[in-house]
Design a protein around this nucleic acid. Sequence first.
DNA 1: CTAGATGCAAAAAGTTTGCAATGCA
DNA 2: TGCATTGCAAACTTTTTGCATCTAG
Lengths: 136, 136
Amino acid sequence: MTKAEKLLKEKKLSVTEARKSVLEFFLKSKKPLNVLDFKGDKTFESFNESSIYRNITKLEEAGIIQSIPSAGDYQSYELVNHGHHHHHISCSNCKKIQCLKVCGLEKRMKEMAKTVDFLLVGHSVELVGLCSDCRS
Amino acid sequence: MTKAEKLLKEKKLSVTEARKSVLEFFLKSKKPLNVLDFKGDKTFESFNESSIYRNITKLEEAGIIQSIPSAGDYQSYELVNHGHHHHHISCSNCKKIQCLKVCGLEKRMKEMAKTVDFLLVGHSVELVGLCSDCRS
DNA sequence: CTAGATGCAAAAAGTTTGCAATGCA
DNA sequence: TGCATTGCAAACTTTTTGCATCTAG
């Protein structure tokens, strides 16, 4: 049994070709995905657009994926377990989103919090930049 | 001359009622705004929806406002000066929000961006902490 | 007076829904 | 078999555009 099938069964979702493919795409992707990513992949040419939307919704309801803030035209999603603490950077030009594996901001943030007499508990960060494609 | 008028002239944008109102709304708002915020405000009942969109676009092109990542259905914008160096910390217990006058995260963020070959342009940050009242 | 802004209506673009047919359990 | 899922078309929502009119400079 594949990892996708196993995950779906755990969450008591029925295992269909479309659903399995959507989940597998998330499992193998290193960055958040939006509908356009699915439409651009030939695996999904055989599935209807509404099935992609409906399956994304199902996976989100099941807590397998989650939507993440994005500045672009499409809602982006990623696996809930996709790393523990991580942030994203989006391209200000083409809106592409990428996961960052590193953080290391806590030390400075603790100091910032201290300036207003707060004890730092957590943080959320969105970086904006220009990707290599858009720079050249 | 109002602050909005001054800003528009600086950027060589013509000063119309609609444009002035849109910018004033941003200037007095303490949070990012989306089209729905405009449609919900009675000042904007007299303006056409497309004028709101077109003016938001103009202000963005002029570098007065910028779009920010958002998880909702509507694109959100904020004044450029708010996004760059005006962060907030909120108390996880009493929800009080405090402005931070310091940042100093750019250096590390530049490094983070570099790990995925992005050139850092901006960032948005929300810190969460415990205020002194809630710690005692 | 003229370039740019506006209102209105129509079109795009992105997403959701109803329904009949199909597939999973 | 029975309920969930799918495809398809149509509806909906959010945003953009064309064009005639109006307004700021």
